[in-house]
Amino acid sequence: MKKHNFSAGPCILPKEVLKKASEAVINFNGLDLSLIEISHRSADFVAVMEHAKDLVLELLDLKDKGYSALFLQGGASLEFLMVPYNLLPENGKATYIDTGTWSSKAIKEAKLLGNVEVIASSKESNYSYIPKNYEIPSDATYVHCTSNNTIFGTQMKEFPKTDKLLVCDMSSDIFSRQLDFSQFDLIYAGAQKNMGPAGTTLVVIKDEILGKTGRKIPSMLDYQVHISKESMFNTPPVFPVYVSMLTLEWLKSLGGIAGIEKVNEAKANLLYAEIDSNPLFQGVANKEDRSFMNVTFTLTDDSKKEQFDSMWKAVGISGINGHRSVGGYRASIYNAMPIESVQVLVDVMKAL
């Protein structure tokens, strides 16, 4: 039976990417050696790393604009600490917009290093909306936001307009929609939501903003060290970087971000239309802030839960249970999710 993978992460990946990746694990580039046993300093893998970084900047339209792309480790969770280490002076102020679990974790880490002000939050409503109409303090060094909130199913449609440094955690919607990425000074994203397997983290950073905090930064936490060593300061996560490269090649072949955005809009509109028209279901997030990556919804009649669960399991749907913080259901429809799988879910909802 075909499986329809709605998992929030690790994410669904294109089948052609999985096929190429599996072949590389056995025999990479005709070397009769596995990708995961060759030297990361070899010409074969250095070419992978360079191509992956070039694809990132090309797809984000940041090539030759003073940005560096890095593939690091530690997930977005380590970036919660690396960002203030590299951007926040000891007497500076960092400002954060609290829109969910991951932004609240980022706030917690930043507070270990300096003065942090939460300028907006939707915590009081269990993060069901994106805060608006907030003010950014004149003494802020940077503003941190989270573009998409995987657990709660909300997504920022507009970003802060500011002359301060703008930092964004894009872990769960990177490469999914067209944006002016040059408005951001630093973007980071764990690969496992929309780009590749767990194990690497993408960081895209404007070079000129670094080295201005006056801090002594541990080498592994210093972006300038990683840039100078071309993401090779320590042994990189070879397999996740390679699979991310393949996924970026796949995305480019579809017409890049502009091409996949149309597909993502069609998938989200199909599913939200059913949620809004079917009296047995209701959405969790405010309509104007709904995510096109993570669709959260609940049953209006809990007595139907057992029946609904058995129905979606019977057709091969996987990974649709909601996070414990929200309950109900969460359909993650990342770039590689085909619209046919979304239609299968909609058909089950109609049949309930």
Score class of each variant (00 low, 15 high):
S182K: 11
E37P: 03
D54Y: 07
T296Y: 13
W312M: 05
F233G: 02
Q282L: 00
G211S: 10
L35S: 03
C11Y: 05
Y85H: 02
S104Q: 10
N234V: 08
P160W: 05
A24E: 10
A140M: 03
G75P: 02
T99D: 03
G75C: 10
L88A: 08
L186K: 02
A21M: 10
K3V: 12
L88P: 01
G75I: 08
S291G: 09
D185I: 09
K193Y: 15
A198N: 15
N269C: 10
N286L: 09
I12Y: 07
P237M: 04
S228G: 05
P137S: 09
K111R: 14
P279F: 15
Y223C: 04
L271D: 08
E58K: 14
T150W: 06
Q183Y: 06
S253G: 04
L221K: 04
M293L: 12
D173R: 11
S122N: 11
A43Y: 02
Y96I: 02
M1C: 06
M311N: 08
S325Y: 15
G327H: 09
D44C: 02
D98H: 05
D61S: 13
G74D: 02
K19V: 13
P240R: 04
K267S: 04
T235K: 14
C168G: 07
L186N: 03
A198I: 15
G196F: 13
Q155G: 09
D302A: 13
N149D: 11
L33E: 15
D163M: 04
D347I: 03
